[in-house]
Amino acid sequence: MKILVLGASGATGKLLVDQLLELGRDVKVIVRASSSIPQSWGNNEQVEIIQSNIHEMTVGEMANHLKDGSAVASCLGHNLSLKGMYGEPKKLVKDAVRLVCEAYLKSTPLMPLKIVLMNTAGNSNRDLNEPVSSSQKMMLALIRTLLPPHRDNEEASDYLRLMIGQNHPSIQWAVVRPDTLIDEDKVSEYSLHASPTRSAIFNPGKTSRINVGHFMGSLIVEEKLWNKWKGQMPVLYNLNA
């Protein structure tokens, strides 16, 4: 069974794909034709490359890509440019999550599909009573209004929480919430928490992208870890950050 990675050409997505390959897993990646991906993927029998724009894909097309899949990992995000922040598609992440869910349910699922969504520590898990100061609530309300990508992240996780829920027979999910992303060359020690232990606005932590890829890959392949965090939104911090 293959693992489908969305956003595989991004800084974190590439590291996730590498992690899955190191774990011996077969991977499908959906990337735009103009995307830059490692040349080694094209020479690797474990990697199937699908050139397409995810926001233009139909439910039927996605269902076809999920036929031999056991999991989907999304590292999709908006480019940090005016067009990427304010242009279309404004709901890139949410629409991709919805597309995957609708496509899988349209088929005849033989086993539950795992969905792992990369998100942000600035997005609260509203299934829990996560303490948020009044000043942070005000800042988040402003960010939500001014920065559509943040609202997209919130709505993507809300789709999984509210539309799929905790006990769906065909879809299981986990939303990974790193704090401020940084680049490091190697996987380092990191800590996992059900909720943020610091303010993502006024006292942010740091999370290396390679640690995010490591954790997302481990979630998919390690059943004990998956059973611990499925239906939750774990927060990830570098241990020494």
Rank of each mutant, 00 (worst) to 15 (best):
G24E: 02
R144P: 00
V31M: 08
L181C: 04
R161Y: 09
L113M: 05
K137G: 02
C75V: 05
P89V: 09
M85Q: 12
I210E: 00
S218H: 15
T120W: 11
R198S: 15
G87E: 08
S35Y: 15
N125R: 12
Q46I: 09
A121R: 03
Q172V: 00
H193N: 13
E45M: 03
T145S: 13
I49K: 02
D18R: 13
L80V: 08
C75A: 09
L99R: 11
V31H: 02
K206S: 10
K90D: 03
R198M: 12
K230A: 12
A241D: 14
A11W: 00
G69D: 07
L99M: 12
N129C: 10
S52P: 00
A241F: 10
V116F: 03
W226K: 01
R144H: 15
W173E: 06
L142W: 12
L16G: 04
R98H: 10
L128G: 05
S34P: 00
N211W: 01
G10R: 12
P38K: 04
K67A: 09
K67P: 04
T207Q: 03
N79W: 01
I30N: 05
C75L: 02
N125C: 14
D68E: 13
V29S: 05
G69F: 00
G84M: 10
A71R: 02
I115A: 01
N64M: 10
E102M: 09
L113G: 01
N125D: 15
L181M: 11
V100A: 03
V116C: 09
L92T: 10
S36A: 11
G231A: 06
K83D: 10
G165R: 05
P109D: 03
G165Y: 02
G10V: 04
T58Q: 08
K28E: 07
W226S: 01
Q172N: 08
D26V: 06
K83H: 13
E48V: 06
L82W: 10
R151N: 11
M138I: 06
P234G: 10
Q39T: 07
V72W: 09
I143F: 13
G213I: 04
I171H: 03
L160K: 12
L16F: 00
R98E: 15
N123A: 15
G77Q: 05
V100T: 11
P38I: 01
N240H: 11
A8D: 06
T145M: 08
F215K: 15
T12R: 02
R161W: 08
E45A: 11
Y86M: 10
S195F: 10
E130M: 11
V132F: 04
D185M: 11
S74I: 01
Q136M: 14
V100P: 12
E223C: 03
V187W: 01
S81M: 08
G231R: 05
E222V: 00
G213N: 02
E130F: 06
L146M: 14
E48F: 00
G13M: 04
V221I: 14
M216V: 07
S124I: 13
M62N: 00
L20Y: 05
W229N: 04
L219E: 06
N43C: 03
